[in-house]
Amino acid sequence: MLRQIGKRLATAIPSLIGVVVVTFLLTRVLPGDTAAYFAGPAATPQAIAEIRAKLGLDRSLPEQFVSYVKDLATGNLGNSLSTGRPVVTEIKARLPASAELTFLGLFLAIAIAVPLGILAAVKQGSIIDHACRMVATAGVSLPVFFTGLLLVYVFYFLLGWAPAPLGRLDAFSSAPPEVTGFYLIDSLLARDLETFRASLAQLAVPAITMAVFSLAPIARMTRASMLAALASEFVRTAKASGLTPTTVIIRYAFRNALLPVVTTLGMVFSFLLGANVLVEKVFAWPGIGSYAIEALIASDFAPVQGFVLTMAIMYVALNLLIDMLYGVIDPRVRMEG
């Protein structure tokens, strides 16, 4: 097992090196002159040149790359030019915010989509099946900023159930002492139920927004792979042995249908984590997506590099996790190892 994980990690190293090279090159070819941007509109050419020299941008690309890799080796992702703070610190602070939102959104989506997909497959052609199709189509075709705004309008403005969509906590609470960076967990660890409630209230609407969007692929995939599993010969054997419908559906069909569902989950998760800029913007969420997009607009390349690298590492870790899950679910995958 450990050897297998080691092997998988080893195969990830070339892709990580590729990511380092590509992000470095990409940020260099992005339009916009970083030095000119930070010197301000009124700066003289000399001032711009000075800043450029200070940033090291006047050196050749290979030279810049070597110093970038050297910094990287010491865990230094550089400083953000717009905030002046180290990128590592920023990402450390913002990644948990995005992750907490994503996890909760994904959890909600799974909790709804998987049972819905199973039911839709078991009762194919029934009302539930049509409902599943409708929910999935609606969820995937409504843009997240629209769902987000709609939910804010209904739950905050009309009903007043949700707090103002302004970040992770309302103005009256303070952040719990940091352990994991997830406010829900940290507040529970600190036995601060008030903060827990406040952060949950802030989380609920954006998490639902994300869930609505990610419902569709999960429900559709669950339904499709369940249909295939239910039509298989071993399900027929199970039925012919008189096993109860619950056993047949869960233990025989669903466990076999899990592989494609897990694959889809991995894809949905990585997509949600990095690409939910719109949700973060709508809810003023201090997440990693909005951080990256702001940096990109400002031609501030250090945070962009840091963001892409973080995402790449997360993606590799996620794929490793999924591969291990495959092994847990399907003994045949273990053999190939």
């Binding site: 298989s232 010969e233 071993f234 027929r236 054997t237 199970a238 039925k239 012919a240 042995s241 008189g242 096993l243 109860t244 233990r251 025989y252 466990r255 076999n256 679910i329 399907d330 003994p331 045949r332």
Partner: peptide, 24 residues
């Protein structure tokens, strides 16, 4: 009927490998 199946009358199938749950 479900009580009868497997207890009073049962069935064996063509293609035995496909007739068994592959991951159990």
């Amino acid at each position: 009927v479900r009580d009868l199946r497997g207890r009073e009358m049962s069935m064996i199938f063509q293609n035995p490998r496909a007739a068994l749950n592959p991951i159990r």
